[in-house]
Design a binder for these strands. Sequence first.
DNA 1: TATTATAATTGTACCGGTACAATTAATCAA
DNA 2: TTGATTAATTGTACCGGTACAATTATAATA
Lengths: 236, 236
Amino acid sequence: MLKYQQIANDIEKYIEDHALQQGTKLPVLETLIAQFQVSKSTITKALDLLERKGVIFQVRGSGIFVRRHKRKGYISLLSNQGFARDLEEFDLTSEIIELEVKKPTEEVALNLNMNLEEDVYYVKRVRFMNGKTLCLEESFYNKSLIPYLNHEIVKDSIFNYISDALGLKVGFSDIYLHVGTLTEEEAGFLQLKTGAPKLYVESIFHLTNGQPFDFSKVSYNYEQSQFFIQANGQLF
Amino acid sequence: MLKYQQIANDIEKYIEDHALQQGTKLPVLETLIAQFQVSKSTITKALDLLERKGVIFQVRGSGIFVRRHKRKGYISLLSNQGFARDLEEFDLTSEIIELEVKKPTEEVALNLNMNLEEDVYYVKRVRFMNGKTLCLEESFYNKSLIPYLNHEIVKDSIFNYISDALGLKVGFSDIYLHVGTLTEEEAGFLQLKTGAPKLYVESIFHLTNGQPFDFSKVSYNYEQSQFFIQANGQLF
DNA sequence: TATTATAATTGTACCGGTACAATTAATCAA
DNA sequence: TTGATTAATTGTACCGGTACAATTATAATA
């Protein structure tokens, strides 16, 4: 692990272990430099990471302070780094509805930057959070990048398989949010009424080299889904 | 303007003006250093900024590439920097329903970190995008931080007033998303049917020193609202 | 030709330095 | 005591350097 990542983890763990409140002042830069025995720029990088993660905020001329949002039970839509930890509070499971190799539709081919003749893995799952239906998910994977999937992999975390077994690195993603109403089929899987509201999310995941490998369309149960974003600046 | 911000703007403008496609390779670091006549770390900061903004992505050992999402008409939920420009494509107006000084409810006081005896400005607006109803918004401002508001200010951009006239600087924000159904009152303002789906967003905006000054509850018209997020890493 | 080893390219990590701007604390004047 | 001035504190901007890791291009080998 890189130095600045390790330091960021250490500081975050310190905040958690000591249950520091919002606004608590952390040691000044010079002290942190002495404590961790690294250069200023390395500490700065670690702190910038924590700031983007929403753990701290820095005020020039004043100090470094703990930032903590209080509400529990929200799924973070923005995983600027090490997001997996946020999910440990949830018990996430899934049931596989379909798993097969297909030819992409035009929509899928466009989003995955593929030809219509190439193959995609199609995965349809119902996902549960703490035992309750969370969402119905349809995912398409570029088979030339993800050459093999089976029920065991899909049942577990596909992303873990991609990084651990295939050695691929996930980079950035584009996420599109809509609100809509549940179709009859979706309502059935989610155990809700047809026409009830849903949060509909389309995501395109890319490798670090920019190649899109996963296009997913997810309908969330509106009763279960609460999401959280951390941002900088105004909405409008 | 800071050097690295100016360079980031220049590079982004170059990409826009030349309509560079996704994946186009930009000049290598050394060339950029020579072009802009600054040190390596300044260029790196500018590029990191653009990467977080979603304008480029960098691949170590390979190069710097243009990243561009194609879909138009989406409101970016994440304004990592200079987000206002993204909104120029929309025609945003608003109609003021209420504007008054109030005592905060417990919920408002909690989110704004205030006492129940202090005053808040309460602003209720219907907001329009390209002439169509976009959302119904209720905002609460800490009056000790935002001492004066009138119809003219509220009609325009409150955030512009805060930064330009009051000289305050907006820092981070926490955003909570829910899906729900419209109440009768909301449906009336949004010209939709009671019980129709809505995207419900609560936001808390902070100054750079961490003080919360604005708590807003917004119900979005599901027919009009399409949102966009850029992230790094997986959802789950 | 296909595969493997090697070299060149290129972005990132990390160092330690100076200057500066924003905030806060201390000092002084009224 | 209050308000303004000054000084100390503290994070950020910017510099330029070495080393290294990931990728890509080239050369060597089978």
